Computed example of a mutant assay.
Amino acid sequence: MDLFLDILLDTTTDTVKLIPFLFLTYLAMEYLENKAGEKTVDMLLNAGKKGPVIGGILGVFPQCGFSAAAANLYSGGVITVGTLLAVFLSTSDEMLPILISERAKAETVVIILGAKIVVGVAAGILADMVVRIVGSSKKRELHIHEMCEREHCHCEEGSILRSAFSHSIEIIGFIFLISLLLNIAVEFIGMEELVSTVSRYPVFSIFVAGLIGLIPNCAASVTITKLYLEGVLSVGCMFAGLLACAGIGLLVLFRTNRDWKKNAMILASLYGVSVAGGIIAQILF
């Protein structure tokens, strides 16, 4: 019973931290949909190569809600898939606090953060280039209103504050439920034991580390970072796992964006780039 209460408390605490990010994101989206001028909207929709660069740099900061905010902005048509991918790859989740608390060398921290930014920006720019080539005739548009219609929130009947609050509460409930189930599963599976066992198989472990990193739970980034610092995981496993750690962003993406084919492609791209990055890091270091 005590264990369950601890899990419940941890899940509640982590979820509450997301509320400001989600509320401000939805507030900005509602403003764009209802108040912002056409020039402002066009500027955001046509940010071009700047989007992945900005996303890659901002994503590296330890903000648990940033990947969730990016997922919402992508689902609403505000940012490109490249910008979203850059954020997912560069986001540090709980990695940076663990590195600092464990007194990792400053050089190690800088290399890891720098590598995540470079990989995120490069992959994001490449993804946007592919999208422009494949669908060059299609003009991107905001489709925030479509999200409102799917959720039956009746946003048009109230203020943008009410709409933002309504969306935030709805998505927070979803995140809390899934996170609680994931935390229970992680507790009983034993994340550290699982990762330690896999690390005995050098090449295979990079692919598995990437899969573990995809788990939308802070336990993944915490475990991978700690085991790397303890010498249990190789540099390749560490990079593969931490590049794939998009935090709660993947949960929000699959909840808010109904184009499952695009979601699957983003997930596959995130995993593929993470594994490739891990293999390259293993060879170089």
Results as ranks from 00 to 15, higher is better:
Gly56Ser: 11
Ser67Met: 03
Ala70Trp: 06
Gly65Arg: 06
Thr80Ala: 06
Glu33Ser: 10
Ile54Met: 05
Asn34Ser: 10
Lys35Trp: 15
Ala36Val: 02
Leu73Met: 14
Gly59Asp: 02
Gln63Lys: 05
Asn72Cys: 15
Thr83Phe: 04
Gly82Glu: 07
Ala70Cys: 15
Gly48Asn: 03
Gly56His: 09
Val41Met: 02
Gly82Phe: 09
Gly51Glu: 13
Gly48Pro: 00
Gly37Cys: 08
Asn72Ser: 15
Gly37Glu: 06
Ile57Tyr: 05
Gly37Leu: 03
Leu84Trp: 01
Glu38Asp: 12
Gln63His: 10
Gly48Ala: 08
Gly65Leu: 10
Gly48Val: 03
Asn72Thr: 15
Phe66Cys: 07
Gly37Asn: 08
Met43Arg: 10
Met43Ala: 15
Gly77Ile: 00
Gly51Thr: 11
Phe66Pro: 05
Gly56Phe: 12
Leu45His: 12
Ser75Cys: 02
Gly82Pro: 08
Lys49Glu: 09
Val60Ala: 06
Gly65Met: 09
Thr83Tyr: 07
Gly51Arg: 07
Leu58Val: 14
Gly48Phe: 01
Pro62Lys: 03
Ala69Tyr: 07
Ile57Phe: 08
Leu73Phe: 09
Pro52Thr: 05
Ile54Asp: 00
Ile54Phe: 05
Gly77Glu: 00
Asn46Phe: 09
Leu58Cys: 10
Gly55Glu: 00
Leu58Met: 09
Gly55Leu: 00
Leu84Lys: 00
Gly51Cys: 13
Ala47Phe: 11
Gly48Thr: 04
Gly65Asp: 07
Gly48Arg: 12
Leu58Asn: 09
Gly82Tyr: 05
Pro62Ile: 06
Lys50Gln: 11
Val81Leu: 15
Gly56Gln: 02
Val53Phe: 11
Gly51Val: 13
Ala36Asn: 07
Leu73Thr: 10
Gly65Ala: 08
Ile57Arg: 01
Ala47Leu: 15
Glu33Gly: 05
Val78Pro: 01
Ala47Asp: 06
Ser75Leu: 04
Lys35Asp: 14
Leu45Ala: 11
Val81Ala: 13
Cys64His: 06
Lys39Phe: 04
Ala71Phe: 00
Val78Leu: 02
Pro62Gly: 04
Gly55Val: 01
Ser67Cys: 10
Ala68Thr: 15
Asp42Trp: 07
Leu45Ser: 07
Ala70His: 05
Thr80Leu: 08
Val60Gln: 02
Gly56Met: 07
Lys39Met: 08
Gly82Leu: 12
Asn72Tyr: 11
Ala68Ser: 14
Val78Ile: 06
Asn34Gly: 08
Tyr74Arg: 08
Lys49Ile: 15
Leu44Pro: 01
Lys50Thr: 13
Glu38Ser: 14
Gly59Glu: 02
Ala70Asp: 13
Ile79Phe: 08
Leu73Glu: 04
Lys50Arg: 11
Ile54Trp: 02
Val81Phe: 11
Tyr74Ile: 10
Ile54Gly: 00
Ile79Lys: 01
Leu84Ile: 01
Val53Ile: 14
Phe61Tyr: 14
Lys49Cys: 10
Ile57Trp: 01
Gly65Tyr: 10
Ser67Thr: 13
Ala70Tyr: 06
Lys35Met: 14
Asn46His: 09
Leu44Asn: 00
Ala47Met: 13
Gly55Cys: 04
Val53Thr: 10
Phe66Tyr: 12
Val53Pro: 05
Pro62Phe: 04
Ala69Arg: 08
Ala47Tyr: 13
Glu38Arg: 15
Ala70Val: 12
Ala47Lys: 13
Leu44Lys: 05
Val41Arg: 14
Leu73Asn: 10
Ile54Glu: 01
Gly51Asp: 08
Asn34Tyr: 12
Gly55Gln: 02
Pro62Asn: 06
Val53Trp: 07
Leu58Glu: 10
Leu44Val: 04
